[in-house]
């Protein structure tokens, strides 16, 4: 067992972990942060994506011991304290960027990371930017729209880039 100190979604934790414990299993099983899920064994699907010290990583491909001294943000920690959704969460909802929702936490965390690096991504740039996250339901088109809309909101633009859809929110 190794002792780690880690800040997750704004809360400090001190825990003993086996070195082989993956960060995602630590989050899910020791902290109850089950919003982050596991979809594969080979770091292909990206469902487990969280931010480690501000950068998107696949938490199934990081050992929990490696997060010692670090800050982790999960899907459960991106909304504001008053319960308001992050613009990326809002955009996924508005653009119907999810169906079963299993890939969604990872997809949202990867998308935020992308927009942090590229505030105004083109359709192709979004597609490349989320290449590490598999979705089996949506065919990605509405995810792309959502990321573009959120990018606009996160950077103080109106949602001009994304195709607006429907009449009713």
């Amino acid at each position: 067992m190794s002792q780690i100190n880690v800040r997750v979604d704004g809360v400090d934790y001190t825990d003993d972990v086996e070195p082989r414990t993956l960060l995602v299993h630590y989050l899910r099983e020791q902290l109850g942060k089950v919003g982050t899920v596991v979809g594969c064994d080979t770091s292909n699907c990206g469902a487990c994506t969280v931010h480690l010290d501000g950068e998107a990583v696949k938490s199934c491909t990081v050992f929990a011991v490696q997060a010692d001294g670090s800050e982790v943000t999960t899907i459960e920690g991106i909304g504001s304290a008053d319960g308001a959704l992050h613009p990326m969460q809002k955009a996924f909802h508005e653009m119907h960027g999810l169906q079963c929702g299993f890939c969604t936490p990872g997809m949202i965390m990867a998308s935020i990371d992308l927009v942090n690096d590229n505030p105004d991504p083109s359709e192709d740039e979004v597609r490349e930017g989320i290449e590490g996250n598999l979705c089996r339901c949506t065919g990605y088109q509405n995810i792309v729209r959502a990321v573009q809309q959120a990018a606009a909101e996160m950077n103080g633009r109106t949602a001009g880039a994304a195709e607006t859809m429907g009449a009713q929110a």
Partner: peptide
């Protein structure tokens, strides 16, 4: 190489 998450690590 791979994807942005993998490239971060």
């Amino acid at each position: 190489v791979a994807d942005r998450q993998v490239r971060h690590r």
